[in-house]
Nucleic acid binder design. Structure first.
Lengths: 203, 203
DNA sequence: CCGCCAGAAGCACGATCGTTCTATTTGACC
DNA sequence: GGTCAAATAGAACGATCGTGCTTCTGGCGG
């Protein structure tokens, strides 16, 4: 399963995996070294030796979460054919990874965005960068669909990306807060209708 | 300004006001007694005497935030004429209270919903109840607009409320994270178009 | 088979956490 | 204005926080 080289790299990866999961429950700031040590069965100092500081741990955790997001959401979405299908596939893959509880507290970046939203610093910047990347991807997929003539250019891709992202995150929050999986269908209904409206008349 | 009776009630209200503001920055869980004491210029124990426990403080803070929300969002919205105008007014009032930074970290309940989303308990329940109340209000306003013939019944009011709420919270998050106030216009554009589409043909 | 060194543990530090107890100040009422 | 309760402060508690330093250990190269 683990193909890393040294033992240190393997345990480090395992720690970060657990850290990303815990961060969606306790928040990226609320995550503590002691709790993470308990969860991984290590000593505080043994764990801490892998990261020079808590800031370093947080940044590494964000990077680990990003890789998980790539595998669980981006990769599957990019298998769909280019155009409106791929855009829809990205939305479905996002909702799926929330429903499958890839992270126990739902979307890692949505959770992190809230509790680092107000404090400036490297962690804030890293989370913001990931968010912008994701929005840019949605925008790019929408733009591709427009170029293929599958979408009108009326709502510009950036506006469409904003609206889709809003629905995705709303479903995430509702699901985590209430545990009601019907919100996924509710979000998909809204997304499909939104895309249908934006399609050229000939359809 | 303060019309409460005893001095204790006045300081208690002032504490809760500050607590609600701080909670949007540090999170409802991350808010600490020491920090709150420093912010209010009181001693930890003097402050703590007003609340038997941190749980009690959190619940009281939620109630204080609810009252602020009523004054800053609900009250102004209900001044608009019943129907689609009032529904739109509610959305605008929400966005306005975020932009005016009534709470420094944006919508109190959006912030709280995320960091108590995963832990069961009284705090979780209280936040969830407020969220459901707000969604129910949007749904009621949408229903009233439908009854007045200003909206089709095609997207049922609950679905419409979900979509509007998604756009509102997305604007809140974007604004807090990036400080870009153009997201408010972006959200309003989406909301207006969403409502327009749902209007009967004769318009 | 041995020695070495990365990796993990143990322990301790100052600070802060929520909480409780006691002492002191303050404000309201007769 | 004096009295008594209410309001606030001070100090301390055990626990946990992030962070160092020192010690042990076990697996890999010679």
């Amino acid at each position: 399963m683990n193909t890393e080289r040294t033992k240190g790299e393997r345990t480090r990866a395992a720690i970060l995996d657990e850290a990303a999961r815990l961060a969606t429950v306790d928040g990226l700031e609320g995550l503590s070294i002691g709790e993470l040590a308990r969860a991984t069965g290590m000593s505080k100092s043994g764990l801490y030796a892998h990261f020079g500081s808590k800031l370093d741990l947080q940044l590494a955790t964000i990077e680990a979460a990003r890789q998980t997001f790539v595998v669980e959401v981006l990769r599957p979405a990019l298998h769909a054919p280019k155009g409106i299908e791929r855009l829809l596939a990205a939305c479905e893959a996002f909702l799926s990874h929330v429903e499958r509880r890839v992270f126990p507290g739902g979307c890692f970046f949505s959770a992190a965005a809230v509790d680092v939203g107000t404090r400036a610093g490297p962690v804030h910047d890293a989370i913001l960068a990931q968010r912008l990347d994701w929005l840019a991807l949605l925008e790019r997929l929408a733009g591709e669909a427009t170029e293929l003539g599958e979408l009108e250019s009326n709502p510009d891709p950036a506006q469409l990306a904003f609206e889709l992202q809003a629905l995705l995150v709303a479903a995430n929050t509702s699901f985590i807060l209430q545990g009601d999986e019907r919100v996924f269908e509710r979000a998909l209904v809204a997304i499909r209708e939104r895309l249908q409206i934006a399609q050229p008349a000939a359809s």
